[in-house]
Amino acid sequence: MAGNVIEINNLTKRYGKHRGVEGVSFTVKEGDIFGFLGPNGAGKSTTIRSMLGFLGYEGEIKILGSDARSGHEKLMKNIGYMPSEAMFYPSMKVSEVIKLAADVRGTDCADEAGKLCERLKVDTSRSINELSLGNRKKVSIVCAMQHKPALFVFDEPTSGLDPLMQNTFFELIEEYVKQGTTCLLSTHVLSEVKNYCKNVAIMKEGKLISCGSVDELTHTNSKRVIVTADGKKSDYLYKGDMNSLIADLSGKNITQLDITDPSIEEIFMGYYEA
């Protein structure tokens, strides 16, 4: 049975009087692509930044068996992190940034970096200050993946990437995961979780509101009801006893009735709005 790569226990972080995250606990198993879902400001980045030792926090975070705070230097050898902003030193060239990231790790990543640059179509001769957000993201992907870490931590990785590059990016993740890498994917794009993740944690207003397998969390008794009754069309998510629904509709002149399973987007939106 796979061990836990990430163990977060009762993580709390406040920024003065402002809420960061409160009492967050979850685990990520080895070899998982774990979705970390939530709207903007839910506390996803705060959780990730605490995991990587960028923030002080209360609670316990263990990554790859080591304490996130005291083991920062050792841990980062085995983590590939892609921040949401993907900012680099503007005066440097892409090749210099990629080489710097490899050299600080004391690893020759030239072959892997070359392959990644080819797949992602990264022009290494360009200067960082000439790059768009999407191109900076691609450089960030190369920096995060070139040393073949045991854990990827991606914070909203696909914003700014074109759809083709998004596909390539997820292909790469799946290839590395097959080789044993674990991936924490923070996103607010529901389809990414649906298409690529086995497990998911959902954050809202600094708290973890749900955590489990994508299949479990998307299993619901809710139904989308589209009905035209007495000449009036209604479209709503129905949660409750089906007999009551039928009873409600029975006295009406029904000209159209569709009862379907809700989409994954609707289910997750239900978590956000709860």
Partner: peptide, 17 residues
């Protein structure tokens, strides 16, 4: 200020160093 801290500190080096 330049938002490069996340790149720098995501490398395996302690902040003290």
């Amino acid at each position: 200020d330049g938002h490069t801290g996340e790149f720098l500190y995501s490398l395996p080096v302690s902040i003290t160093k």
